[in-house]
Design a protein around this nucleic acid. Structure first.
Lengths: 151, 151
DNA sequence: CCCGCACCTGAGAATGATTCCTAAAAAAGA
DNA sequence: TCTTTTTTAGGAATCATTCTCAGGTGCGGG
């Protein structure tokens, strides 16, 4: 995993460049996310990190994941921020998701609805549709992007 | 909204074809989702539905949303199923999400990483990346697709 | 290398969304 | 209509996540 080594090296720099202190807890959490393949949840990461940093608390894991997510070092695969939000499955459309404030905006763009995909994973999975999430920063979050809000 | 009218008409049929009873609670919940533009959460839908079905309970709203999601009539925009799941933001890749069991699988496909998007929403939003979610049914959920599991 | 201070962490309480449980009500369908 | 199966209301229970705050720590300036 060359990528992983590099990512780890770059971690301290990435933190500093955004005004975040480099703590070993943060490194351990990031390392744990880097090292797992299975889309771990906070509890799983807590368990893993605990092995190297026995005193770490759940609160720190949650806090750190949120921080890393806001600066873009970690992705929330499930995008489970706050309460679950719904919409009718009518015409396909896509979403803009702000990493700063978690606002979700609709994006209607016909040209995105004609993606052709090679049947993924040998037909074991039946695809019925898709959605594209564009992540980034909305206007108001862009201006304070260097330092994540606690919310 | 021609789509809405049509969707509502088709609702009963859609339920029946999947072996779901057609209850007025279910219709009211679906109608509420159809009628809102703002990615409502369960609480909001509860409030709206309550106006027409005063005796409805929160439990029913949650249950119904989950059911409708599993059969594909409603989309969980935030995909907030269960606990939040993370991964390192290394090389871009995409996901297969099973509507039945909520399993998330990685999908690496170079050709999907070169999507060009017209700058969405007049530059008010700064896009830093994107992810595509392919939704559908995994092999084991496909066989029992007609009737959703309670989990 | 030491200080000061803003930023972080640990521990556990508090919150709040979601799920679960059960008796009663409603839908299905023969 | 009668029987069977599914669904609902209501409320308790769960459990992930956030908050609070006292004590610790990274780090820039001297």
């Amino acid at each position: 995993m060359r990528d992983q080594g590099r990512a780890l090296e770059a971690f301290a720099g990435a933190c500093r460049s955004r005004g975040l202190s480099v703590t070993h807890q943060r490194q351990a959490v990031y390392e744990a996310v880097l090292g797992s393949r299975e889309h771990p949840d906070a509890e799983e990461i807590f368990r893993v990190v605990k092995a190297s940093v026995p005193t770490i608390s759940r609160g720190t894991v949650y806090r750190t994941l949120e921080t890393l997510r806001q600066v873009g070092l970690v992705t929330d695969v499930s995008r489970a921020r706050g309460t679950a939000r719904f919409e009718a499955a009518l015409e396909p459309h896509h979403h803009l998701v702000c990493l700063g404030c978690n606002k979700i905006m609709d994006l209607h763009d016909e040209s995105l609805n004609r993606l052709r995909v090679a049947p993924p994973v040998d037909g074991a999975f039946e695809v019925t549709g898709y959605q594209i999430q564009f992540v980034g920063y909305c206007r108001s979050c862009r201006s304070r992007k260097t330092k994540p809000q606690s919310r």
